[in-house]
Computed example of a mutant assay.
Amino acid sequence: MEKGVFVKDIVPNAEAAGIFAVADAALAQSRNGPYWRLVLADASGSVEAKIWSPLSGDFSEIAPGTLAWVEGRASLFRSALQLAVEKFRPLDAAEAASLDQTAFLPSSPYPIDGMDEELRELCLREFTHKPWRRLVFAVLDDEELGPRFRIAPAAKNVHHAYAGGLLEHTLGVFRLCRRMAAQYAELDRQTLLAGALFHDFGKIREFSGGLNNDYTGEGRLLGHLLLGVEMLGPFLVRSRLESGLQEHLKHLILSHHGELEFGAVRQPHTPEALALHCADNLDAKLAQCRGLFTGLEGDGPAWTPWQPTLGRPMYRPPRTPGGREGAPTERKTAKREECLSLLKA
């Protein structure tokens, strides 16, 4: 089947037809009878939709995560785009299985293959102690965990909450920890980087991922810190990593939230644990800001609404004219370091 129109291409006062995932569904009541209030989504965004009576009576249940062929007319309601549904047909299992699921999942703005390749290259470069290297690549090459790590989200809705988000966040924290280790020679570089690589690994089991990403049962009961330590257990045994280093890695994972009130099992008690907490916190908060600012209209200064997770609204300030946007990629940095070493030789 063809996907049809994407959310981003729906415009007011025009017909729209395509396949969408039902992100949310609720049955409500109006003066004219019951109606369904839906949020329809695909990889390009989401749009509110209404199934009015009498068509609404054809559906006793609409489950979130359902894929459906939808036809309707778009309009503006209180300055927001809304779709009045004229046809709604849930797809059967065979039709849903034939579709490219990535068309319906919000995903990382960066190519997953490129991020995975960069992270693996960095691991090859950094983990020179054989037990560390044995552990790292046994996990990354695991037939079950490796593919799930590539596409898992890093959250339900706060930061990196999309396919590939966990890989993107892990790579960001790994890069930051490399810079910290270069700045502060007292840090155990390989232990810190192992903590960066595995600090959120338990999110593979904490979140369901997919079209209706949510917390799993064990995710709610145990959380990704404990799940991550549990998942690494068999790999640690086979790695023959020294017991002291195993203990330190577990501490990094269990303490990276920083404070007990924010979900840490223990507060950070080593310099490496403090460094990892700072790197994780910075990458998560700046990713959240990036998402907030992307949703603001225009390119000039603007305030976001109040953000409960940050405890404040955020301001997008004016930019320095001609200022450099962002930091160089790891590949460019590595190339620059190579050139500098040649000049010094």
Rank of each mutant, 00 (worst) to 15 (best):
L222Y: 14
L222R: 15
L222S: 14
L222E: 08
L222G: 04
L222W: 08
G223L: 07
G223H: 11
G223V: 07
G223E: 13
G223F: 03
G223I: 01
G223N: 11
G223A: 13
H224K: 10
H224M: 08
H224F: 10
H224C: 12
L225A: 11
L225Q: 05
L225I: 09
L226A: 11
L226D: 09
L226F: 05
L227W: 08
L227R: 06
L227N: 11
L227E: 13
L227A: 06
L227S: 12
L227G: 11
G228A: 05
G228Y: 03
G228L: 03
G228I: 01
G228D: 07
V229H: 07
V229K: 06
V229Y: 02
E230A: 13
E230T: 11
E230I: 05
E230S: 14
M231I: 11
M231C: 03
M231V: 04
M231S: 03
M231T: 09
M231D: 09
L232S: 03
L232R: 00
L232I: 02
L232W: 00
L232E: 10
L232A: 02
G233Y: 06
G233M: 05
G233P: 06
G233E: 09
P234H: 12
P234S: 13
P234D: 14
P234T: 15
P234L: 08
P234A: 10
F235R: 08
F235D: 12
L236A: 05
L236E: 13
L236W: 02
L236D: 14
V237I: 08
V237S: 07
V237W: 08
V237G: 01
V237P: 02
V237F: 02
V237E: 14
R238L: 05
R238I: 00
R238Y: 01
R238H: 05
R238Q: 05
R238D: 12
S239A: 14
S239G: 12
S239T: 12
S239Q: 09
S239E: 09
R240P: 14
R240T: 15
R240W: 15
R240I: 10
R240G: 15
L241S: 09
L241N: 04
L241W: 01
L241I: 02
L241Y: 03
L241G: 12
E242D: 14
E242P: 04
E242F: 01
S243T: 11
S243C: 08
S243M: 03
S243E: 15
S243N: 14
G244F: 02
G244T: 14
G244N: 15
G244A: 15
G244H: 08
G244D: 15
L245P: 02
L245V: 06
Q246A: 09
Q246M: 09
Q246I: 06
Q246S: 10
Q246T: 13
Q246Y: 03
E247N: 10
E247Y: 04
E247Q: 12
E247L: 06
H248C: 07
H248V: 01
H248R: 14
H248K: 13
L249K: 00
L249I: 07
L249P: 04
L249Q: 01
L249E: 03
K250F: 00
K250I: 00
K250T: 00
K250L: 00
K250W: 01
K250V: 00
H251Y: 04
H251C: 00
H251M: 03
H251N: 12
L252C: 06
L252T: 08
